Every structure is written in C-alpha cells, then in structure tokens.
Simulated scan of single mutants.
Amino acid sequence: MSRTRMKGIDVSYWQGMPAGFRYRRFKEGGWDFIIARIGYAEDGRLQFDSTFEHNYRMCREHGLKVGAYFYSNARNARQGRAEARYVLRLLRRRRLDLPVWIDMEDEETSGRATRRQLSAACRAFCRTMRRGGYQAGVYASTSWFERKIGWLGRLPKWVAQYDDHVTYRGRYDMWQYTDNARVPGFTGGRDANRAYTTFRPIRRRIRRMW
C-alpha cells in the first residue's frame, strides 16, 4: 500500500457533540478529517444520527475534511438504493470532501445475505450516491470483504482491521487500524484511520434523487 496521505477519525452519536475548541485542537494536532455517521438502519427503519449536523458544521468551521457513513442493514440492491436515497435526503446537497460510505457489518441483517446479494446492495448504494453527486465506497472488516461481500469492481474500500498491518489482499483506499486511539482535542478512545487516496469530489451538479 502507498504512503498515508491523510489521517482522521470516524464519529457517531456515541461520541456526543464536543465543543468547537476540541475540533480546533484536533486540527492543530496534525489530523486531517472526520467521517461522521449520518444515519443507520435498525429493525427495518432508517434513522438519522442526531450528531451529524454538529460534526459537519464543526469540520467546516475548523478546516477539517469531512465525509459520512451510513450503518446498513441492506441485503439486496433494492434496499441498498433505498438507504442511499435516504442519505441523499439527509445531506440536502451539502458538499463533502470524502466519500459517503455504506457500513457493512451487521451480522443479523446484511450478514445473512449471500455474497452476490451483498455486492449488489453495495453497488446499488454507491451508484445511487454517485448519481446524486457524491463519491461513495464500502466500509467493512477484512473478513467481510474476503468472505461475505462479492465483487465490487473499482469501488473505494475502507478496511477495518485492528492490527499493525492489513492482511486483506485486494486494493483498498482507507484503513481503520484501531478503535482506541488517543487523539488531540478529544477524550477517550477513538476509531482512527489512514487514507491512502486523495479523494476528489465529483465535478458535476448534485442531482436531486428523491
């Protein structure tokens, strides 16, 4: 894998809404981005993450690159598209610097689908996001990429593996290497990530897809 181009953390409701000075210290400490959960699926319902607005605004105010992720329950292409359309409604044409990631890790829902169904769900989600004007990719653990998710073509991949190196043998763009990093500005352990790609926003007008 090529050199690290950016480093950052991912956050959700569980990390609350820290004060603005914490984001400033994070930036001053040499960190580059935050990927904020925008929503999640649970028991067949699509829900928004009440901390996304705050995280987005703080990133913009303090010069941090920002992306988003959605915790998925999708088991087929139809459900992947539905989740993406929901995310597009929540985004309301905001500009993002990093992709919108479909988070594939729920064993009780997506984990029960076949490899073919899961790859179709991921590709449908990402295709819908791109048509809406956003970069998109797939987040999963090494074991999910290798054993559960089928062919994804050239979609960006964000691999989770808490180790000193990644054993996934395919191409990937980001690595979540720990869930307990101590980072400047914020308290407690954080999910920390290394990005190996400088993501470029899609250079076209964001389309309304809902």
Rank of each mutant, 00 (worst) to 15 (best):
D49A: 11
W101Y: 13
R22V: 11
R95E: 15
G16L: 09
Y69Q: 04
S110M: 00
F21E: 15
E108I: 10
C59I: 09
G44I: 10
E28Q: 14
R81Q: 15
A68M: 04
Q79N: 00
R45T: 13
C59R: 00
L88K: 09
D97G: 09
Y23G: 02
V100S: 07
L64F: 08
G111A: 03
R22G: 06
R37E: 01
R94I: 11
G20R: 06
D49I: 07
T109K: 03
T51H: 02
F70C: 00
G16Q: 05
N76K: 07
E83A: 03
N76Q: 07
D97C: 07
D32H: 14
A82N: 12
R85C: 10
F33K: 04
M104W: 08
E83I: 07
V66N: 01
E107V: 12
D106K: 13
D103V: 09
R81N: 05
R22W: 05
H54W: 13
A68G: 03
I34T: 00
F48G: 15
C59T: 06
R75K: 11
F52E: 05
L64N: 07
R95K: 14
T109I: 05
Y56F: 11
E83N: 11
G30F: 09
I34G: 08
I34Y: 02
A84L: 08
L90G: 03
E42M: 12
G44C: 05
F21V: 14
W101V: 08
R81P: 01
R37T: 12
R57E: 15
I102A: 07
A77H: 06
R57H: 14
L64V: 03
A41K: 04
A82F: 09
R57F: 02
R45E: 15
R60P: 06
R89Y: 10
E28I: 02
K65P: 01
E28V: 05
L96H: 08
A68L: 06
S110Q: 06
G29P: 02
L90F: 08
N73L: 04
D106R: 13
R37K: 13
S110D: 04
W31R: 09
G67V: 07
E105N: 02
M104S: 08
T51E: 00
E42C: 12
F21M: 13
R78P: 02
A84I: 02
L88H: 01
D106E: 14
R78F: 10
W101N: 10
M104A: 09
R92V: 10
F33G: 02
R112M: 07
Q47I: 12
E107W: 09
E105F: 03
I38G: 11
V87L: 07
E108P: 07
N55L: 05
L64E: 04
I35R: 03
R93S: 12
F26P: 04
A36H: 03
Y40R: 08
E108Y: 13
C59Q: 10
R85V: 12
R75N: 02
E107D: 14
K65D: 12
G30H: 08
R22I: 06
G16N: 05
L96Y: 03
F21C: 13
R60E: 08
R22T: 15
A77V: 09
R95H: 14
M58C: 04
